[in-house]
Structures are given as structure tokens and as C-alpha cells.
Amino acid sequence: MHESLSIRVTTYALLAIFVFLVAVPLFWMVATALKSNKDLYEDFSYLPTRPTLQHFVRVITREDLLTNIRNSFVVATTTTAVTVVVSAFAAFSIVRYRYWGREWVGRLILFKYLLPTAMLFIPLYTIVVAMGLGNTLKSLMLTYLSFTVPFCTWMLMGYFRSIPPELEEHAMVDGCSKIGALFRILFPLSAPGIVASAIFSFTLAWNEFLLALVFTSDHTTMTIPIKLSMMVVGDQYIWGQLMAGAVLASVPIAILYFLAQRFVVQGLAAGAVKG
């Protein structure tokens, strides 16, 4: 009982610290989005003295930010869907099968990460143009796979390995095929890991900058990070719009996180019932 009390106190104390650390910069972003230009460019103030929604209105009506949010959403969703399937199969194959070369494929796909994107965007763009995908969202969906798939494959390998293979072996003894065991045993048990991987893939695709900058060239195909970067106009940060845009762009993905977190908990509950 004594220990449990001290644990609770520590937990809530740590939670308070973390919430504070995360909240300060977020607070500043939201406060900036609500400040008038006078507050922003002339005097310092902790809170907006004359709160205004003008920046939000402007980025939606004049900058048509919702189009860019939709573009990002389409790209990130498609990329994530493909990524989860492809990398779950790949991870399953590497972890649960035994054949020559599987480990090397796993290592080689990591080579994508060994060079900075600044070195890779030129050949990738050559590929994109050769496929006739210049200035399309498809070019992003395709090339984003080159960094989401290795990432998620490795993450899922980690999660799959944490689950004892005996569970699947039992099922297979009961007449389940190997693939059947994947769908019935491994996927449900590693659901939190799969959701986490999906979140990673989504976030990586949502925030990617350099490839989107190079591959797309007009408003209809621009993703949200590119659009936001255009709000640094010349030698001037358009702070109000920039932050309003960033806040707006973060809402869909924040909701997604929230929902996904619930799913992680449900996944846990489902696993517990089985156990």
C-alpha cells in the first residue's frame, strides 16, 4: 500500500512535468495564431491582448489551406495503408520463416536511411519523371514508401519478435495454416505495434518536406509542409498565418492519434481476454 501511494505520487508528478514541457511550446503556437499583428510584431505579450481569428480565416479563405490538408491526408493515408500491409508481410516473413538471405534484405532496406535526403532526391525525381508522375500526389505516395516501409518493417520485426512463436505453433498444430496463424494470432497480439507503426508511417508522410518540395509544383498538389513554408515570405515570417496553419494542419492528425490510442488500449483488452 505504501509503495503504491509513492508510485502514484511519482507518476502524477512526472505526468505534470511532462505535460508542462509539452504544453509550453504548444501554448506559444496557439497564442501566436490568436494574436493580432500588433501583438506579434511590436510588443511582447504572454497572451493575446486582442485575440483574433483573422489568421485562421485568412489561411482558409485566401490561402485555401484545406486543399493542402486534403492533399497531405490523401498521401499519408494511402502511403500508410500500403506500408502497413507490405511491411507486416515482410516483417512476418523475416521473423517467422527461415530461408537464406532474408536477414540481408532486412539490412539492405535500411540503406535508404544511411544517406541524407539531400543526396537522394535527385535520382528519386529522375525515377518519378521517367514514370510520368511529375507534379502528382502519386509521386509522393510511391516515393514515401521508400522510407516508411523499411521503418515499419523493422518496427514490426521488433514487435513480432516480442511475441513467443509457441502461440502460433499451437494454432498450427490445431490445423491452422501459417498465414492463418499470422492473421489469427500474431496480428491481434501485436495490434498495438501495428497501430504504432501506422502512426509512424502517417506522421512521416504527413511531415515530409524535401521530396514534396521538389516533386510538386503548384497549389493543387502541394502538401501542407510546403504550403506552410511558403508563409515565410522573403525575409519575413508571417507568424500569425504560419501558426494558424500549423494548428489547423495538426488537428486531423491529433484526432487520429487520439482514436488510435483508444484502439491500442482495445487491442490490449482483446489480447488479455485471449490470454
Binding site: F18, V19, V22, P25, L26, M29, T203, W206, N207, F209, I224, P225, L228, S229, L242, M243, A246, A249, S250, I253, A254, Y257
Partner: peptide
């Protein structure tokens, strides 16, 4: 909430 920093575009 604690995951929000990762939501915001890195550039911002």
C-alpha cells in the same frame, strides 16, 4: 496530448 510535438510539422 503527450504525443502532440510529433504531430506538428517539423519546420514549424
Amino acid at each position: 496530448f503527450l504525443l502532440l510535438p510529433w504531430v506538428m510539422p517539423a519546420f514549424v
